[in-house]
Design a protein around this nucleic acid. Structure first.
Lengths: 123, 123
DNA sequence: GCCATGGATCGAAGAACGTCAAGATAGAAG
DNA sequence: CTTCTATCTTGACGTTCTTCGATCCATGGC
């Protein structure tokens, strides 16, 4: 896996500490909450899952919309929220728009949630 | 029959396939979204962090309330939501109420978010 | 140029959420 | 039993979210 050009580990200002290592400060909490809020809707979770489970490829909007019993503007709206949360990105290619996942964002969240391996009673 | 035989909690098995391994079905998405929604508020994230970063011990409400510029009922409300999401639990002990984290819930979420280590992560 | 198609944006209706003040409940101390 | 402290619950208010229909923008084909 290729690394980004950022060698520092705390680039996002909330990436590293983790929920379980120390109390989150207010600013980190606001930042993280935005991303978790984006995941706090079943439609967005399914959209993200559809996209992220195709790590190699993109998913066309025209493929996602009919998978839900929702209007096209609603799907578009949810995709926008996922994009604003930094979880996915998209590109127009001809007539169609393709979305792909940004795995680093998911990894960051997982790291925040995952208790340190040595957590618990260390003594 | 309340619970089906789906008691396997193996993170790679039937319970938590993970966002990135296959598209989430609607029911799983609704279930997961409830937990992520509980994390989608900065106050709740900080509360959970305060509690979870003391894995060995509990945190008294009397210790959490003054950490926020919010009324005590509001804190109580957020703690209730975290408890309903299965992220924390509590017990009254004398005059005070103590909360502690349920690390298995956090682990489950992390597993859902984390791309499968051996499969698909080809970036 | 014109039209058809895929997607995004706008504005509005209804539901859900975060917050507080006021009241209720549980235990401790006198 | 009464009172006090710590916490939870209730009811209400304003804000935010989800969803939709209608409309607009971008691209490709004629």
């Amino acid at each position: 896996m290729s690394k980004q050009e950022l060698e520092v580990v705390d680039q996002t200002g909330g990436c590293c500490p983790g929920l379980t290592s120390a109390p989150l400060d207010a600013e980190q909490a606001v930042d993280l909450a935005k991303v978790f809020k984006a995941l706090g809707d079943p439609v967005r979770l399914r959209l993200l899952s559809m996209i992220a489970s195709r790590d190699g490829g993109e998913v066309c909007v025209c493929e996602m919309t009919p998978a839900f019993e929702l209007s096209q503007p609603t799907i578009s709206h949810h995709l926008k929220l996922l994009r604003q949360a930094g979880l996915i990105d998209c590109e127009r290619r001809g007539t169609w728009v393709y979305y792909w996942a940004l795995p680093a964002a998911l990894d960051r969240l997982a790291s925040v949630l995952r208790a340190p391996l040595s957590a618990g009673a260390t003594t």
